[in-house]
Design a protein around this nucleic acid. Structure first.
Length: 859
RNA sequence: GCCGGAGUGGCGGAAUAGGCAGACGCGUUGGACUCAAAAUCCAGCGGGGAUCACACCCCGUGUCGGUUCGAAUCCGACCUCCGGCACCA
């Protein structure tokens, strides 16, 4: 960049030195309200944030999870955008081509609900909110490349969401069917399992109901369960908690799946177990109440009526919550027996509420001796308990066991497997059952396929057509997008609002040309957000969703920043979609996000004094524009960085914000108020010998350069800001004492204020650019190279050596850095303090750490 | 129950690789400036003891133990809180 060399006469004005205080007082005050818009305009006009795809520098793709446009942001929202912006600005100043795009997750329930509430069409509502939020982002000085802006609710975007759907469909990864799904009565739509908090809707908190809904579309995410699980191991830069949550969610378990014949019946029942070693201890079988065999097996028998009654009751209970572990276990005998595949014994089949249809096969082999739940059930209904595993030295008896034994041990009551350790027995039993074609090793997942259909208006229409003669037919690629009609009634009724729009529904079959009807459900917004990070690379491409070579250059995202609430939902779906696109050859990478950072929420006190996540509905939100108006964007930015470690939840503090404002004002005063001492040619005046105080300021300056850069890299923004505070404090003191007539004083001071200005620029970019310009330099600092610390200058000349006796600090010595530690140890032994503690004892050992410590070990 | 994370002054937090615990900020106390206030600047503030005052001594990073010359940091057990999963077979 070009440096404007300031004219020397400026520096002569420093004869005011003796009135430094007076000069400070009359100095122009820190008027953020005029500075901030000025620089925002300057950055936009000079297109400083735009980074083209073919930028020659090393690429850095920095991404914040794109938000649903909600209009006015509060300080809780602001945090992650600022964190990302600091990283982006710092990387840019380090010479990277940093892409930091922003866009809008504009489809979906929140936007639709808000629109309904405000009696306005969702598209209009969305447009308004986008405008508002964009303004706020700009008012915060965030360096987004708006040329890459995407909006998921616009046809040129959702055309490609539909393309993605068709890719899934044509490759056997999208299927439709009737299924029991989660229905949220308040949102009036079905939801994916990932969108539940237990049994309630994560969005509105309503209890969801199981409901049979025909024609629901699913993506076969289970085909990728192993890849999704295994590749977690490659994500070194993801938080442990997110990896753990995804692992939990996928819920892989290995075991054996096998079938049992049923007495006097053509039916078989299939079960899955992770404890095949306990198979000789099976004393009853249990079916889930929803299991189809229940009705079939009891039909026409004396058990039919009571069993049906039981099932009815159990299903009702389900709505309340059968899944809680402490729910009382109930069951009823079906009157039917299964045949044990190894012993040929008759085993009674029961129906019970503690077996879930949604997991495994919906049926279990019950081994009460070795499973707590089966044990509880057996004791309640007087069913036999047969132990088959016993640790050495124990002697179990089925009638007297007080609880199930779930640990390891040796096989008993297990025919020819007796005496084996249970893990060996498990292997041999699995082999045996596979050889005899009774069953086979199997893997079971908790993860289920992804339900993407929604009975709502505001989403991307599913590009499928139903034809009486051809069946379900995909819309051809060239006919995309299937446009969302703008004139549709959009109030939710439980059926897709699109179904009542004749113009939309009635179409021709792409296959036979006859009359046909469109699919009227829309896709969940999680489909839109599962691929948006690709579109940012080629947001204006008309013929394809993205250009492979560009995407392969920029992806994976180097640093992805967002809320931990997406640990499973969005992040799992995005990984899945990436893997699909990889498999189909559209991208070369298999994971979309190399490094993930999940920031903590900002919390605030509610009216009744509780600490809660900041939100409008809880009444504890601090609007971002209020803080910007009161203190300015730079204070808002610096505060959310200083408030605490970014991954942690923090409490909002009005006093804290005021403190940051004081700090920035102090920076303003010490720099802008002393510009008469600024000398752009400071490098020319630092050649000679410096006095201690001058060297101390240079040392502090270079130590700060080192610390701020390191701390930003490791995302310790709070300590980076505090380092700037320390330097500022030193400079305030120095400015009061320095001589404006002394060129060396001025040079030292100039070096310091220039660097302070550069170092705070990622945090407070407006203030920094204003000061930079006032020093006579060409803005913007974003185009300036991040400084490198001079390690020699940063090194301490004198170090404090801690002198310990037996590990307790007894004295301190100040010696030149790099002193010979043996000599220092000798000195240490002689000091009065140490002598006191050595009296009457003999020195056994002396431990020294260079420039740090002497520890004298005495007995 | 299983998995993940965290416990440090009045408060938010700092201590990057096992080496001075408490940086920086908030709050608070005292002082300077002022007719006064605000703003600003300077100084003190973990607990206990000792002292006219210093010097100095003891305790102290959730609890108990261990490793080590030395532990907020490593190991073991436990307690509490936060998050995820959960009658998951």
């Amino acid at each position: 960049m070009c440096r404007v060399v300031r004219h020397r006469s400026r520096y002569r004005k420093s004869r005011y030195r003796t009135q430094a205080r007076g000069v400070l007082k009359v100095a122009e005050s820190y008027s953020f309200a005029s500075i901030e818009p000025k620089w925002q305009q300057y950055w936009a006009q000079n297109k400083l944030f735009e980074v083209p795809n073919d930028s020659p520098a090393d690429k850095y793709y920095l991404l914040v999870m794109f938000p649903y446009p909600s209009g006015k942001a509060h300080m809780g929202h602001v945090r992650n955008y600022i964190i990302a912006d600091v990283m982006a600005r710092h990387r840019t100043m380090n010479g990277y081509a940093v892409v930091q795009p922003m866009g809008w997750d504009a489809f979906g329930l929140p936007a639709e609900n808000a629109a309904i509430q405000n009696q306005i069409h969702p598209s209009e509502w969305t447009e308004q909110c986008v405008e508002e939020m964009k303004q706020q982002f700009d008012a915060l000085g965030i360096s987004y490349d708006w040329t890459r802006e995407v909006n998921a609710s616009e046809p040129d975007y959702y055309k490609w969401t539909q393309w993605l759907f068709l890719q899934m469909y044509h490759n056997g990864l999208a299927y439709t069917g009737e299924a029991t799904v989660n229905w949220c009565p308040s949102c009036a739509t079905v939801l994916a399992n990932e969108e539940l908090d237990g049994t309630t809707c994560e969005r509105c908190g309503s209890e969801v109901e199981p409901r049979q809904v025909p024609g629901q579309w699913f993506f076969k995410i289970t085909d990728f369960a192993d890849d999704l699980l295994d590749d977690l191991a490659t994500l070194d830069d993801w938080p442990a908690s997110v990896l753990a949550q995804q692992t939990n969610w996928i819920g892989r378990s290995e075991g054996v799946r096998f079938s049992l014949d049923i007495e006097d019946s053509d039916h078989q029942m299939e079960v899955f177990t992770t404890r095949i070693d306990t198979i000789y201890g099976v004393t009853f079988m249990v079916l889930a109440p929803e299991h189809p065999l229940v009705a079939e097996l009891t039909e026409g028998t004396e058990y039919e009526e009571p069993v049906r009654e039981f099932v009815r009751k159990a299903m009702r209970e389900d709505e309340i919550s059968r899944t809680a572990a402490d729910t009382e276990k109930h069951g009823i005998f079906t009157g039917v027996h299964a045949i044990h595949p190894l012993t040929g014994q008759r085993i009674p089949i029961w129906v019970a509420n503690y077996v879930m249809m949604g997991y495994g096969t919906g049926a279990i082999m019950a081994v009460p001796a070795h499973d707590g739940r089966d044990f509880e059930f057996a004791r309640k209904y007087g069913l036999p308990v047969v132990p088959v595993i016993q640790p050495e030295g124990e002697s179990f008896h089925g009638d007297t066991m007080a609880e199930a034994y779930e640990g390891e041990g040796l096989q008993i009551n297990s025919d020819r497997f007796d005496g084996l350790h249970c893990t060996d027995a498990a292997g041999q039993l699995a082999d045996h059952m596979e050889e005899q074609s009774i069953g086979s090793r199997a893997v079971n997942y908790r993860l289920l396929d992804w339900l993407i259909s929604r009975q709502r208006y505001w989403g991307a229409p599913i590009p499928m057509v139903h034809c009486d003669s051809c069946g379900t037919v995909p819309v051809p690629f060239e006919d995309l997008p299937v446009l969302l009609p703008t004139d549709a009634e959009f109030k939710p009724t439980g059926e897709s609002p699109l179904a009542r729009n004749e113009d939309f529904v009635n179409t021709v079959c792409p296959s036979c040309g006859g009359p046909a009807k469109r699919e009227t459900d829309t896709m969940t917004t999680y489909v839109c957000s599962s691929w948006y990070y690709l579109r940012y690379i080629n947001p204006h491409e008309d013929d394809q969703p993205f250009v492979k070579s560009d995407v392969d250059h920029w992806l994976p995202v180097d640093h992805y920043i967002g809320g931990v609430e997406h640990a499973v939902r969005h992040l799992l779906y995005a990984r899945f979609v990436t893997k699909v696109l990889h498999k189909l050859g559209y991208v070369d990478f298999t994971e979309p996000f190399a490094r993930l950072f999940t920031q903590g929420m900002i919390c605030a006190r509610t009216a009744d004094g509780r600490l809660e996540k900041m939100s409008k509905s809880k009444g504890n939100a601090v609007p971002a524009d209020k803080i910007i108006a009161q203190y300015g964007a730079d204070t808002a930015r610096t505060y959310v960085l200083f408030v605490g470690p970014p991954e942690q939840e923090v409490e909002w503090s009005d006093e804290g914000v005021a403190g940051i404002f004081r700090f920035l004002s102090r920076v303003w005063r010490v720099v802008a108020g002393n510009l008469q001492h600024h000398d752009a040619a400071w490098r020319d005046h630092l050649g000679g010998d410096l006095v201690d105080e001058q060297r101390a300021i240079r040392r502090k300056t270079h130590q700060t350069i080192r610390k701020v850069g390191d701390d930003i890299e490791r995302m310790h923004f709070n300590t980076a800001v505090s380092a700037c505070m320390e330097l500022t404090n030193d400079l305030v003191a120095y400015a009061g004492k320095m001589s404006g007539d002394n060129p060396t004083d001025c040079a030292v001071f100039s070096e310091a204020i220039e660097h302070l200005t550069i170092l705070i620029s990622p945090f407070a970019p407006h203030l920094a650019d204003e000061l930079w310009e006032r020093m006579g330099y060409q803005p913007s600092l974003l185009q300036t190279t991040w400084p490198e610390a001079d390690e020699e200058l940063a090194a301490e000349e004198q170090v404090t050596i801690v002198v310990q006796v037996n590990g307790k600090v007894r004295d301190r010595l100040t010696v030149p850095a790099g002193s010979d530690m043996e000599q220092v140890a000798e000195m240490a032994k002689q000091t009065e303090q140490v002598q006191k503690h050595l009296e009457g004892k003999s020195v056994r050992k002396i431990i020294t750490v260079p420039d740090t410590l002497v520890n004298i070990v005495v007995s």
